[in-house]
Design a protein around this nucleic acid. Structure first.
Length: 270
DNA sequence: AATGAGCGC
């Protein structure tokens, strides 16, 4: 081991900094950040020659990287207290990405004894309270007689079980589209929900919007690769007036520490 | 802050 870079008579970087500029020693590395460009300047001696290494980085500004950037400002401590900025190759390895599988989810927690967690109760309660406020039952089928919200004057077609052709459903607003319920045909009864907390899942949305009427489709926008929720979703109802009541009822509703925003969805391009 | 996936025609 040539002891050029690690001279035992110099106990730490802190001491080397004192001698910066002296003949024979190397200036300490520097790191400057201008806008979103980071410049790292290092010096080294190889084969008796001095090298100055300047590297520039573009700093990512994605949300996920902000936390990383913030951690870079943390003070080093312990045996690394006097290390130069950045990872020390002697003590740090950068590995491949590690993908985690999350074993637990909210449903599992609710069904366990962990039910004494007050947050779980609170959450369920909020949904029920909302439903009661609007005079709806969470059961979706029967509404209590004398409910505050009058039953909309919709002819009892679907309730008799009689077949209604697609073109006559939803108040006859649909025309000439396929029978497939999953196409964009339902976009006139689709709402967009934004400001969802990122751990909200489809089942949570189901629970939340079910009281307003029968739902034909739920789309929770997620990152294709990471599965991370993008914080907004589309909920399609079979009936447009159910969607309207969902907008009125849930917009501004506090859910998972955030205030939900609910609006009509614009039709998508396809 | 923000308006959806992929496929076959």
């Amino acid at each position: 081991m040539p002891s050029i870079e690690y001279d035992d008579s110099k106990p730490s970087w802190a001491d080397q900094v004192e001698e910066e500029g002296d003949e024979g020693t190397l200036p300490s590395p520097k790191e400057t950040i201008k806008g979103n460009i980071k410049t790292v300047t290092e010096y080294k001696i190889e084969d008796g020659k001095k090298y100055k290494i300047v590297r520039t980085f573009k700093i990512e500004t994605r949300k996920a990287s902000k936390a990383v950037a913030r951690r870079k400002n943390w003070k080093k401590f312990g045996n690394s207290e006097f290390d130069a900025p950045g990872p020390n190759v002697a003590t740090t390895t950068v590995s491949d990405d590690v993908f985690m599988t999350f074993v637990s989810n909210k449903e599992e927690f609710n069904s366990q004894e962990q039910d004494d967690d007050p947050m779980n109760k609170l959450k369920g309660q909020k949904i029920k309270e909302l439903a009661e406020q609007l005079g709806l039952s969470t059961g979706d089928k029967e509404k209590p007689a004398g409910s505050a919200e009058p039953e909309p004057a919709q002819p009892a077609q679907s309730k008799t079980g009689k077949y209604v052709p697609p073109s006559l459903r939803d108040g006859g607003t649909r025309r000439g589209e396929s029978m497939q319920p999953n196409r964009r045909a339902d976009d006139n009864a689709t709402i967009r929900v934004t400001n969802l907390s990122e751990d909200t899942r489809e089942t949570d949305l189901q629970e939340l919007f079910r009281p307003f009427g029968s739902i034909s489709r739920i789309y929770l926008a997620k990152d294709k690769n990471t599965g991370q929720s993008k914080g907004f979703a589309f909920i399609s109802f079979h009936r447009r007036e159910d969607a309207a009541r969902a907008i009125a009822g849930v917009s501004g509703f506090g859910y998972d520490h955030l205030i939900l925003n609910v609006e009509w969805a614009k039709p998508s391009n396809n």
